[in-house]
Computed example of a mutant assay.
Amino acid sequence: MALKLQILYRGPLSSCNYECNYCPFAKRHESAAELKHDRQCLERFVDWVAAQTDCELSILFTPWGEGLTRRWYQQALVRISQFAHVRRVAIQTNLSCSLDWLGEANAQRLALWCTFHPTQISRREFLQQCQMVADRGVSFSAGVVGLQENFEEIEALRAELPSHAYLWVNAFKDLPDYYTDEQVARLEQVDPLFRLNLTNHPSLGAECVAGESSVSIDGDGNLRRCHFVSGVLGNIYGSDWQAALSRRACPNLSCDCYIGYVNLPRLQHDNLFGGRVLERIPRATHWQGIHDRQQAIEKVNAILQTSPPLSV
């Protein structure tokens, strides 16, 4: 049976065309030499993906900066989307780039994880970009950081997005007790899964599939369990990288980022998302319509109640 593996790729790119004050990423500009190095790393990774025909791969690009303003990331997505052994390829993006390249990709294998930044782009412009993605037949989710000053903008975005588009809300966790109970309930009406993101999930010693069926790879090919566990398991450019894959307990006290905690089986993300965890698109029955949203909220609460804090 072919190895099924989800990959998070993060190369050395660390520049962005946006300057959001809450964002820890992309606070610098890169030299031409640094950008060339990032491109070489990415092209080497794509060549490696092309050769893994004995695996079924799903790949999410999670750059520190904005990748799609760079032509080589567009080309990488186009090329990978053509590989028969790749189930899905996706990227986190602010969606500020030209979208003409989408026509070159296999829309059935491509997905975009699109983040709206109200201080950097108008809602109208962001919605136009989302519509262009939808018109190309490409799956996408849209999302935003749940800052209190943006609540009305978030609700307006939900109202104006296509009904098939899921809108996730990332909890702002820089300040303790940032949300009141009423504010949490308000955001749940936009994103019924919000409380899962709001929670810092205790994870020390917990069963986790990161390092077994999901891994993180950097620009040098170093293989890690996830972005949040620093130990290197091996290197994909060696001949025995698959031997490093196994299930291990989490060594961290807690996990508070979506691309980390989705690997905790007890949170049931496979069930919530129906195999579309990579592109952050849950089952439509968990968020379309008032009745569906309420059922999803109740399901999330049930998951959290049956997942008590682990002893540490």
Rank of each mutant, 00 (worst) to 15 (best):
A2Q: 15
L5Q: 02
Q6P: 00
L8T: 09
Y9F: 14
Y18G: 05
Y18K: 06
C20W: 02
N21P: 12
Y22A: 08
F25C: 10
A32R: 08
A32G: 09
E34S: 12
K36N: 10
H37D: 14
Q40T: 04
F45L: 03
V46Y: 00
C55G: 11
L57W: 01
S58D: 07
S58I: 06
L60V: 10
L60T: 09
E66T: 06
T69I: 13
R70M: 00
Y73F: 10
Q74A: 00
Q75I: 03
A76S: 15
L77A: 07
R79A: 08
S81W: 05
F83E: 04
A84E: 06
R87A: 14
R88M: 13
R88P: 04
L95Y: 04
S96I: 05
C97T: 08
S98E: 12
W101G: 11
L102D: 10
G103I: 07
G103Y: 10
E104G: 08
Q108T: 07
L112K: 06
L112P: 03
C114T: 09
T115Q: 04
F116L: 12
F116M: 10
H117A: 09
Q120C: 08
I121C: 00
S122H: 11
E125H: 14
F126E: 05
A134G: 03
D135I: 05
V138F: 00
S139E: 11
S141T: 06
E152Q: 13
E153T: 15
E153W: 08
A156Q: 13
S163H: 01
S163D: 06
A165T: 03
L167K: 05
V169P: 04
A171C: 03
K173I: 00
D174M: 14
Y178Q: 04
Y179Q: 07
D181P: 11
Q183E: 15
V184Y: 09
R186G: 15
D191Y: 14
P192C: 04
F194W: 01
L198I: 05
T199R: 03
H201S: 05
E207S: 15
C208I: 02
E212M: 12
S214P: 00
G219E: 02
G219K: 06
G221I: 03
N222L: 06
L223D: 01
L223E: 00
H227D: 07
V229C: 05
V232S: 01
V232T: 01
I236A: 00
S239H: 12
S239K: 10
Q242V: 07
A244Y: 02
L245C: 09
L245V: 01
S246G: 09
S246F: 09
R247C: 08
R247D: 02
C250S: 07
N252S: 00
C255H: 00
I259S: 12
V262R: 03
Q268V: 11
H269E: 11
N271T: 15
V277D: 12
V277L: 10
V277P: 07
L278F: 03
R280K: 13
R280C: 13
I290R: 14
Q294V: 10
Q295I: 09
A296S: 15
K299F: 12
N301E: 15
A302V: 04
A302E: 15
Q305R: 14
S307I: 05
